[in-house]
């Protein structure tokens, strides 16, 4: 049954994020800060040729994510595909790449950093694209990206 391939309802307007490695879709919801409002549909654990461990799909209704927001997804799902949907049609297929800077959604692993001790805003700059490392703008330590350190921007 071709209409049951994805088992997630189609949306008229909004953003579809496909090829999120299972089970990271909820993490994507968290770092996009969309958990507290709006409608989204989540599909978890579909078979995928590209992702042997399975893939998740997230459909966000009536919201077109900005380039900054979709680039943030690459921290968790570097191979995710983004489709912007308008009036039931794919209006834009967007490629994502590691963001040059990350604000708010990553915790610094250094416990003695001003972001953890003094309430400084969390800001990182890309240090090395191939190693996927970022430098904290406060304590200046370089860190890799681990999902445990990715949080909601509201936290």
């Amino acid at each position: 049954m071709s209409d049951r391939v994805y088992k997630v309802y189609a949306i008229e307007n909004g953003t579809v994020i496909d090829h999120i490695p299972t089970p990271m879709a909820l993490k994507v919801v968290e770092i996009l800060g969309i958990g507290s409002g709006g409608v989204f549909t989540l599909g978890v654990g579909f078979q995928s040729k590209r992702l042997p461990g399975g893939k998740d799909i997230l459909k966000i209704e009536n919201r077109v994510l900005s380039r900054n927001e979709t680039d943030i997804i690459s921290l968790i799902a570097p191979n995710a595909t983004i489709n912007i949907i308008r009036e039931g049609r794919v209006q834009e297929k967007r490629r994502i790449s590691l963001p040059e800077s990350i604000t708010g959604v990553m915790l610094c692993p250094n416990p003695n950093c001003a972001t953890n001790m003094l309430g400084a805003p969390r800001k990182f700059r890309l240090e090395n694209r191939s190693l996927v490392t970022y430098r904290c703008q406060y304590c200046e330590r370089v860190t890799g990206v681990i999902s445990e350190n990715l949080v909601s921007p509201e936290r």
Partner: peptide, 27 residues
């Protein structure tokens, strides 16, 4: 300040120049 990044944070809050005289093990 003993916390790394404290001087950077201060510079973002201050309207006058801040000089870092040592922030933890950072700079």
């Amino acid at each position: 300040h003993p916390v790394e990044g404290a001087a950077r944070m201060a510079s973002e809050l201050s309207s006058v120049p801040v000089i870092n005289a040592g922030d933890g093990s950072n700079q």
